[in-house]
Design a protein around this nucleic acid. Structure first.
Length: 435
DNA sequence: TCTGGGGTCCTAGGACCC
DNA sequence: TCTGGGGTCCTAGGACCC
């Protein structure tokens, strides 16, 4: 926690719905609901007009329709949202290099990295007010709520206090008295499950939470969570504003209007999702070793299965093959409402395509070193990677390629070496070997 | 006919290594 | 005859966030 209120949190008001109202004048002043419009959709954003009827984010679209039948229900135009968001983030980055986007419509800005004469309350207040005006300009009239405080936690709480189109600065030193009367759910990380546990322990407000020892909190909600709860209850928050965050996983999932029972259809859907995951991995120059599937059954129980490959992949067909194999082990006879595929354990080097690189007579291309993972690599081999159909190529020194087939279905085969110009070393012949 | 999609982080147990 | 301890990796599930 800082001595000055130099952390800014900005939140675009009812963002998706506001973009729709901006672009379609006929929607202005009217209830607008953006979200899933199918039978199992939920509300992503409701305009303030729709909120008057009790429509809320995460509510099922069915219920939203019941509460506000005359609202405009829209499935959303994410390209437009992304474009508007980019303009806002660029504006923020022109203010301070330290901008941490939390989503399309929210970001932290570290004003300690901005060029301000000082960080006293009157100065940052005037600056934030000016910034809100500039947001309105670059977005074509969208409003933002802004909070300023001595930490991320306080800035975020502050931005909630005067919504929409408001600005709140929490004066340094007044944080704890601000928090004390609030419900524990104001603390990030306290959702329904944690709130219920605390409630059963007689803890409803931050003030009550403050009186609980750290050991007791750890007993109630676990080590990491208990520790952070203890700190945040006292407004102790030293989390820095972080501009760049590495992607940890990439996934695609879908909920279907009617439960799926046909395995062939499920496999086809998983395959299509896997191709989407591969495409996005390649677009971002990523590849990953762990392929996961997610299956939500008719009764909403959610299963996940994963497998870790010896080497990273960004190939849709490979991801799809592993995804289908993972599905094969699950009983889906009762029907499936959601299927998903993801890849995690991401490496930030770009997967080379050995098929595309190695032609007859070509030298083995220099490939980047794979991330080492102890115990994964055959001893004595130079480490590399390159995915090959259903198996893997392990490369060694220049001019020689070492191949070992190892798939989800078969135990590791023998290690075999080929000269780089060996005609056997073509995509097709290697595929035959695999068979 | 309740309950999205894309993420992050944590926990807990077992395998395995030293 | 009794039975380490720490560290890392992997898997499955759950809570949470926007």
């Amino acid at each position: 926690m800082r001595a000055v209120a130099s952390v800014l949190h900005l939140d675009l008001d009812a963002f998706f719905a506001s973009v729709e109202q901006r672009d379609k004048p006929s929607l202005r002043g009217k209830p607008v609901v953006v979200g899933g419009v199918g039978g199992r959709g939920v509300v992503a954003t409701a305009s303030y007009e729709a909120r008057q009827y009790g429509v809320r984010s995460a509510m099922s679209t069915r219920e939203a329709r019941a509460r506000c039948p005359h609202a405009a229900f829209l499935s959303g135009r994410f390209d437009a949202y992304r474009e508007t968001s980019t303009r806002v983030m660029e504006l923020l980055r022109s203010v301070s290099p330290l901008v941490e986007p939390l989503s399309l419509d929210e970001a932290f800005v570290d004003l300690a990295q901005a060029t301000l004469p000082d960080l006293e309350v009157p100065t940052v207040t005037a600056y934030a007010e000016e910034l809100r005006g500039r947001v309105r300009e670059v977005t074509g009239g969208l409003t933002a709520s802004v909070g300023l405080g001595t930490s991320k936690f306080i800035a975020k709480v502050a931005s909630e206090l005067d919504k929409p189109d408001g600005l709140t600065v929490v004066t340094p030193g007044t944080e704890r008295e601000l928090l004390r009367p609030m419900q524990v759910t104001v603390i990030p990380g306290v959702g329904p499950a944690t709130a219920e546990r605390l409630r059963r322990a007689g803890i409803h407000t931050v003030e009550e939470l403050e009186r609980v020892t750290e050991d007791e909190l750890v007993r109630l909600v676990g080590r990491a969570h208990g520790h952070s709860l203890f700190q945040l209850a006292r407004a102790q928050d030293d989390r820095p504003v972080v501009a760049e965050r590495e992607t940890k996983s990439v996934s695609v999932e879908g909920t279907y209007d009617t439960d799926l029972t046909d395995r062939k259809l499920m496999e086809g859907l998983l395959t299509r999702q896997a191709l989407g995951v591969g495409e996005r991995l390649r677009k971002h120059g990523l590849s990953g070793r762990t392929v996961s599937i997610k299956v939500r059954l008719h009764d909403f129980t959610t299963l996940s299965r994963s497998t870790t490959l010896p080497s990273p992949t960004d190939s849709g067909p490979v991801i799809g093959r592993h995804a289908r194999a993972l599905l094969a082990d699950l009983d889906t006879s009762g029907g499936v409402r959601l299927l998903g595929v993801g890849v995690s354990g991401l490496a930030d080097w770009v997967q080379e395509d050995l098929f595309g690189e190695v032609e007859e007579g070509d030298d083995v291309p220099d490939l980047p070193e794979a991330p080492r993972s102890r115990g994964q690599w055959a001893p004595g081999m130079d480490v590399l990677h390159a995915e090959l159909g259903a198996g893997w190529v392990w490369g060694s020194g220049k001019g020689v390629v070492t191949v070992r087939f190892e798939t989800a279905d078969t135990p590791p085969g023998p290690v075999r070496s080929f000269r780089a110009d060996d005609p056997a070393l073509s995509a097709r012949s290697l595929r035959r070997e695999e068979d």
